[in-house]
Design a protein around this nucleic acid. Structure first.
Length: 452
DNA sequence: TTTTGAGTTGTTCGA
DNA sequence: GTCGAACAACTCAAA
């Protein structure tokens, strides 16, 4: 019999948690449930993410009875806690992000000096990054073949057990669970494992079958909103995949493809940690971009004069979340209409999104910018007006987030600048889309030939 | 090694 | 209004 530490990170749940089951199995004399607030997490106070994390940790603490929270550098704090209780091992789910994997290596090294093992069981994915390779052992660079291989590879069914341990808590300094209010006027989603399960079950009952039909309509807003729960591991994707298999149909198929996209981008970032801020396709380093300035601020504040873009950016500020279709539209606008490098937009998303995931965020941006995975057709330049008319035909989404335009009907709301009397207080279009589209095409032309 | 078919989410133009 | 073709050339993945 021995003691162990379960170091929670992005796996804030007790069921279907293989690392926790290992910690319990090895820790017959007790398991410390530990969470380390490092500066990456701690310095984001006042953000929706910080508020959500606090709520999720509180939910976990409530399930367990308590949670041992410390603040500091993981390589110091994990060692200190493990030694304080005389633990033989520290258990984690493997983290494959550039920051996380480096942190874990540092912790592993520090623990090793005291003969304490860092044991990785499972990951945040159905199929761990690095697992799926082409015949020549190199990683996939295109989604569809990855998806086929991913399906064929398959995944374990959920572990049908709850990690119930003899929890123990070392003496000594702890840190209160952050109790950060979200930015004024904002509410964060209900957090924790139970909330995640409930949300998922409700979604399956009400909306999954229609996922393929309505997921692109921001005004309808019947997306699952599971991203934040996945981000913190309040539910594991394999649990969701098992449920999808029980509810076959077009909706489940489409949803499964989106889960696979999350795994694909995690795999891509694992193989190319430099792409966290560097160009996946390096020939885009030669692309001419404009210095971000006033236009970046206008974009961030939802004052570009393009209704669907401004609605999206304001939703982000108001709710810490943005509909996926609109994420693509605003991203395309920043890169292709304002000629600002994708990294600036990606950073803003990381700052403001409650669900921000480093791999999905950075590679979603790189895809829009044309420098990411997948063939990058030069013609993929979203027309913000066409996109608005197509996906928010009635204008409901725009009306919800841009009060200056709330009085306009569906015919006028997408092009308010055409009105004889444009609405008071709403800015005129920052740029002429037709002109900037051609500008983007010509800048693309300059680096062509250098494309890989 | 060479060949072949295909590549998340688009837009515009002209019939 | 609707619909299909064109928009370049290249890379990827697999046979």
């Amino acid at each position: 019999m021995a003691k162990t530490v379960m170091w929670f990170r992005r796996d804030l749940r007790l069921s279907d948690n293989p690392a926790l089951l290992d910690a319990v199995a090895a820790g017959g004399d007790g398991v410390v449930p530990l969470f380390v607030l490092d500066d990456q997490l701690f310095d984001k106070s006042g953000t929706p993410r910080q508020a959500y994390l606090g709520a999720s940790l509180s939910a976990l603490a409530e399930q367990i009875g308590d949670l041992h929270v410390v603040h500091g550098k993981a390589s110091d704090e994990v060692v200190r806690v493990a030694r304080a209780v005389g633990a033989d091992s520290v258990h984690i789910a493997a983290d494959f992000t550039p920051y996380g994997s480096q942190r874990d290596e540092d912790v592993e090294k520090a623990l090793d000096e005291h003969d304490i093992a860092l044991l990785r069981t499972g990951s945040y994915y159905a199929v761990a990054p690095g697992r799926i390779r082409k015949g020549d052992n190199s990683p996939y660079r295109v989604y569809t073949p990855y998806f086929k291989a991913w399906l064929e590879h398959g995944w374990r069914p959920p572990a049908d057990r709850v990690g119930e341990a003899a929890w123990i808590f070392p003496d000594g300094r702890t840190h209160p669970i952050p109790d950060q209010a979200p930015p004024p006027g904002m509410t964060v989603p209900a957090a924790g494992e139970r909330a995640a399960r409930r949300r998922w079950a409700d979604y399956i009952d009400a909306d999954l079958a229609d996922y393929d039909d309505v997921r692109d309509l921001p005004g309808v807003d019947r997306t699952s909103r599971m991203s934040v729960h996945l981000k913190w591991g309040e539910i594991h994707p394999r649990t969701m995949l098992a449920d999808l298999a029980d509810h076959p149909g077009k909706g489940a198929d489409a949803y499964r493809r989106e889960i696979a996209f999350r795994e694909f981008y995690a795999d891509v970032l694992f193989h190319r940690p430099d792409t966290v801020d560097g160009y996946y396709n390096k020939s885009f380093e030669a692309m001419r971009y404009d210095d971000p300035g006033a236009v970046l601020e206008a974009w961030k504040n939802g004052r570009t004069g393009f209704p669907i873009v401004d609605a999206g950016m304001r939703q982000l500020l108001a709710e810490g979340w943005m509909h996926n279709r609109v994420r693509m539209i605003v991203a395309s606008f920043l890169v292709k209409d304002l000629h600002v490098e994708w990294q600036h937009g990606a950073r803003h998303f990381l700052d403001k999104l409650v669900d921000a995931d480093i791999a999905s965020n950075q590679h979603g941006w790189q895809w829009v910018a044309g420098c990411g995975t997948d063939a990058s057709p030069y013609f993929r330049i979203f027309n913000p007006t066409t996109q608005g008319k197509k996906f928010d035909a009635a204008g409901d989404y725009i009306r919800r987030y841009v009060p200056e335009l709330a009085g306009l009907d569906a015919r006028n709301i997408h092009e308010p600048w055409l009105l004889d009397n444009p609405p008071e207080g709403y800015p005129p279009p920052l740029v002429d889309h037709a002109v900037e589209r051609l500008e983007s095409l010509s800048r693309y032309d300059e680096i062509r030939g250098g494309i890989r």
